[in-house]
Computed example of a mutant assay.
Amino acid sequence: MNQPLVSVIIAVQNGEQYFNQAINSIVAQTYPNVEILVVDGKSTDQTEAIARSYPQVRYLHPLVTS
């Protein structure tokens, strides 16, 4: 039996202090069919690098406009 996909959406801005902990918590769950979507609110810290270090994460960032 196929299990439904569960999408976990994390909206974050400059959240590097707790970001690894949040992603690790999701990855540690026993439900296997999970996608993690990170929506970055123009972070200026290491949020993007952290998100991209996880193969399970799909990193989304807003277009930069003037």
Rank of each mutant, 00 (worst) to 15 (best):
F19C: 10
S43C: 07
V27F: 01
D40T: 10
Q13W: 02
P55K: 06
Q21E: 13
Q17W: 08
Q21V: 02
V34Q: 13
A28S: 15
V38N: 05
T47G: 06
D40M: 05
S25P: 04
P32L: 12
A11E: 06
Y54I: 05
P55F: 05
I36D: 06
L37G: 04
D40Y: 05
A49K: 15
T47D: 06
E35H: 07
I36T: 04
S25G: 15
E35R: 14
I23P: 15
Y31P: 02
V39E: 03
K42P: 00
D45I: 11
Y31V: 00
Q29M: 12
S25Q: 15
A22G: 04
N20P: 07
V27H: 01
T47I: 03
N20D: 15
I9G: 13
S43M: 05
Y31I: 01
A51L: 02
N33R: 09
D45Q: 09
S25K: 13
Y18F: 12
G41I: 13
F19S: 09
V12L: 08
N14V: 13
A11F: 13
V38E: 04
V27M: 01
D40W: 01
A49D: 14
G41V: 14
T47W: 00
G41Q: 07
A11V: 09
N24M: 10
N24C: 09
D45N: 11
A51N: 07
N14I: 13
N24A: 08
A28R: 12
G15D: 10
V38H: 06
A51R: 02
N14H: 11
Q13F: 05
Q21C: 01
I23N: 15
V39T: 02
Q29I: 01
A11W: 07
T47P: 08
E48T: 06
V39L: 13
I50P: 02
N24R: 13
V34S: 09
E48D: 12
Q46R: 13
G41T: 14
Y31R: 05
R52N: 15
Q17N: 08
I9F: 11
I50F: 08
V38L: 11
T30P: 04
